[in-house]
Computed example of a mutant assay.
Amino acid sequence: MSVAVVLPWRDTGPERARAHDLVTAHWERILPGARLVDIDTTHEPFCLAACRNAGVAWAERHHVDVVVLADADTLAEAEPVGAAVHAAARSHVVQLPYTEYRSLRGDGTAQYLAGVPLPDCNAFVVPGACSGVYITTPATWWAHGGQDERFRGWGFEDAAWHTAHTTLLGADPARHPGRVYSLTHPSAVKEGEQYTANAALCHRYHRAAADPDAMRALIAEAHTPEHA
Score class of each variant (00 low, 15 high):
P173L: 12
A200K: 04
L168I: 01
C202S: 11
V189T: 14
T166H: 05
A188M: 14
E149W: 03
D172G: 05
A197Q: 07
A197H: 12
A188H: 10
D148C: 02
H176E: 13
A199T: 01
H162F: 12
H165E: 01
R175E: 08
D172N: 15
R150C: 06
D148F: 02
A188L: 10
R175Q: 13
A199F: 05
A174G: 11
V180M: 14
T196P: 00
V180G: 00
H162D: 11
R175I: 06
T184C: 06
C202W: 07
E149K: 05
Y181P: 08
C202A: 14
T196Q: 12
D148Q: 06
Y181H: 08
D172Y: 13
A160P: 04
E157I: 02
A200D: 01
R175G: 03
Q147K: 14
G170D: 11
R152F: 00
E193Q: 08
R150A: 08
L169D: 06
T163A: 07
A188I: 07
H185N: 04
G155I: 04
T163P: 06
A174R: 15
R204E: 12
E157H: 09
E157C: 05
V189D: 15
G178T: 04
A159W: 05
R150T: 10
R150K: 06
G153L: 11
C202G: 00
W154V: 15
D158C: 08
G178K: 01
E191P: 04
Y205A: 01
T166N: 09
A200R: 11
A159M: 14
S187K: 13
L183K: 08
G146L: 03
T196C: 00
D172L: 13
D148R: 01
H162S: 05
F151R: 03
E157K: 06
R152P: 01
Q194M: 01
Y205M: 06
A160D: 06
F156I: 10
S187Y: 03
D172E: 15
G145W: 09
P186M: 02
Y181N: 04
P186R: 04
G192R: 07
E157R: 05
T184S: 15
Y181F: 14
W161E: 15
G145I: 02
Y195A: 04
G178E: 08
C202E: 09
P173K: 09
R204G: 00
P177W: 08
A159H: 10
S187W: 08
K190R: 15
F156Y: 14
A164D: 01
Q147S: 14
Y195L: 00
G145L: 10
S187L: 13
G178A: 02
A164G: 03
L183R: 00
V189G: 05
V180F: 01
Q194Y: 02
L169I: 10
L168S: 03
E157M: 04
C202Q: 10
Y205S: 02
G155C: 03
V180Y: 08
G146S: 13
L183D: 02
P173I: 11
W154L: 14
E191F: 14
A199G: 02
F151Y: 13
R179N: 04
V189H: 09
S187C: 01
F156A: 11
T167Q: 02
P173W: 11
L168Q: 00
R179D: 14
A200E: 09
P173S: 13
E191N: 15
G146V: 07
L169V: 14
E191K: 15
H162E: 09
F156T: 12
T184N: 13
P186K: 07
H162L: 15
A160H: 00
H162N: 11
E157D: 09
W154D: 15
A200C: 00
Y181D: 12
